[in-house]
């Protein structure tokens, strides 16, 4: 076969392969959000229990993704979970913002929810959220419920 025809076909092939990779990265995967985040700053929060939260889980405020979980560690002095989040530079949060670990849907993935407070001072890079609410553990909820019922019965 002529070398030019061959080159053309191989060119088409390589271009199609790279296009497929781009489609996978941008349309199928989350590369678009990962790359779009651009400048970020880090905030930390300590939780009693993080449930099934994972690294790279979304951080949402009012349902909008504003950042991602960057690192999860165990604080061996206070026996708490320390979650480091990367937040988009465009968004600032007041000092008294409440952080909680929530679940999307009944059995969905867990994510970090931010409820902005009324403080005029905002959190800076490396600072820590003060008000936190850990993940809801189903077993604890049920035992608490049963305990309350038993207490009510005893009062009667």
């Amino acid at each position: 076969m002529e070398r030019t025809v061959l080159d053309l076909w191989v060119g088409v092939f390589v271009a199609a392969g790279i296009a497929a990779l781009m489609v996978l990265a941008l349309k199928v995967g989350n590369a678009s959000t990962t790359f779009n985040m651009g400048e970020t700053y880090r905030l930390t929060a300590d939780f009693d229990n993080i449930g099934g939260l994972k690294v790279r889980a979304p951080v949402k405020s009012a349902g909008v993704v504003v950042g991602r979980v960057d690192d999860i560690q165990f604080d061996n002095e206070r026996f708490k979970a320390r979650v480091v989040m990367k937040i988009d530079r465009r968004y600032q949060f007041p000092k008294d913002t409440a952080v909680s670990i929530l679940t999307s849907g009944l059995l969905g993935e867990q994510y970090v929810g931010l409820d902005a407070g009324g403080d005029s001072a905002t959190l800076k890079d490396g600072e820590t959220f003060k008000i936190t609410q850990g993940a809801v553990v189903l077993e604890k909820l049920i035992s608490q419920f049963l305990y309350n019922r038993a207490a009510e019965g005893g009062a009667k």
């Binding site: 390589v14 199609a16 392969g17 790279i18 296009a19 497929a20 990779l21 996978l24 199928v28």
Partner: peptide, 8 residues
């Protein structure tokens, strides 16, 4: 390249 096309 073939694998990427397959997935896409």
């Amino acid at each position: 390249l073939l694998a990427a096309m397959f997935s896409a």
